[in-house]
Amino acid sequence: MSSTFRKVFSILALLTSTLSAAAQEPAFRVLAFFTGKSDLAHISFVEESYAWFQQAAKQENFVYDTTRNWDDMRPEVLATYQVVVFLDTRPEKPAQREAFRQYMENGGAWLGFHFSAFALTPSAFPQNWDWYHNTFLGSGEYGSNTWRPTSAFLKVDDTRHPVVQGLPAIIKASPNEWYRWKNDLRKNPDIDVLLSVDSSSFPLGTGPKQHEIWHSGDYPVVWTNKKFRMLYVNMGHNDMDYGGTNSTLSYTFGNPEQDRLILHALRWLGAKW
């Protein structure tokens, strides 16, 4: 083997090794927190989410880890992840909350689903964290909800945002329990509403209580706070056969447009875009 050939061979081997290492290096790392105890619908969503996120991780080359130990919400753990997900609840201990606040204020990214924004005083989840519910989410306390979980048509409010690119002007969401909030998100200059309930959805909900059926109004569903790298989506409450078989009657994932929304959110939050 000539000297020149050996040099070329060595360069090619080094290049191949470098490219191989780059291909194996994950684009970003995601840590999802969950509790999985408060409601059959939320438990169903958490269980469903695992397979979907694992498939998305393979497709998008990111690491997806989960934990129900909220004491993992500490600086040394969070520092190893680019994106944190709240699947159903929120941290409750002061040290956990402070670690999350510092993580977000120092450039971390967050994706929250449905019940992760819930707060109602008095309840098992009181509004006792002003930074999270008012400053960060902007929504304040829970106001009311629709029932039963039903599908809704959602309109895209901000067509320029990366998360909604490729979506039609109106999408049909999977069945869900839709929330109303006490704060008017439209009046908060830090909040960018990406999707909200379209008027074609009304009446939304089936009752049996009349106040659980919405006939009009403005209901933001997906939004971001421009001061943070975050996204909240109200989806995450599957329809269940409560009092019967307790089986799942509808699923959050498997809806192509809704799946695309969440996938775009992960790309954006993981700084892949």
Rank of each mutant, 00 (worst) to 15 (best):
S250T: 11
V85W: 00
M73H: 00
R148K: 10
A27Y: 03
A117M: 04
Q165F: 06
Q82Y: 02
K37N: 08
D130L: 14
S144Q: 13
A169K: 13
S174M: 02
H133A: 14
K187H: 02
H211C: 03
I262M: 07
M1W: 00
E76W: 01
Y81E: 08
V221L: 02
P168G: 08
E25C: 07
V85S: 13
L185S: 01
N255G: 08
N61D: 14
L204C: 10
Q102G: 09
N176S: 01
D72L: 13
E76D: 14
T89W: 13
M104Y: 00
R68D: 15
Q210F: 04
H237R: 03
N234F: 10
E141C: 07
P162H: 10
A32T: 05
H161R: 00
S10E: 08
W181G: 07
P189K: 05
S199L: 15
P256N: 12
Y179H: 10
R68S: 11
A32P: 03
T66M: 07
K227D: 15
F45T: 09
Q210G: 07
S10Q: 11
A169S: 15
V221Y: 01
L194M: 15
Q96N: 10
S199M: 14
N134H: 10
E141R: 13
L40S: 12
S20C: 13
F34L: 10
K226F: 10
L137P: 05
E98V: 06
L269N: 02
S216V: 02
F9H: 11
G270E: 04
W223R: 05
S247A: 07
M104S: 00
H133F: 07
I213N: 12
I11F: 14
A21M: 03
A21T: 04
E92W: 03
I191H: 03
A41W: 00
F125N: 15
N69E: 07
D198H: 15
D190K: 04
Q102P: 04
L31A: 01
A124L: 15
Q127Y: 06
P75I: 11
T67H: 05
N176C: 02
K227L: 14
D241L: 05
E48Q: 01
D71C: 09
N255H: 02
S247I: 02
Y64V: 15
L249A: 05
P126T: 07
D158L: 00
N188Y: 11
A124M: 11
L167T: 11
T121L: 02
T67K: 11
Q165D: 11
Y64D: 09
G236R: 02
S20K: 13
P203A: 10
F115H: 15
T121N: 11
F118R: 03
K187R: 10
T146G: 12
K227E: 11
L12I: 12
V163C: 10
S201F: 03
Q210W: 13
P122G: 07
E76F: 07
T150V: 05
W268H: 08
Q54Y: 07
H264V: 01
Y103R: 01
L249W: 04
A56C: 04
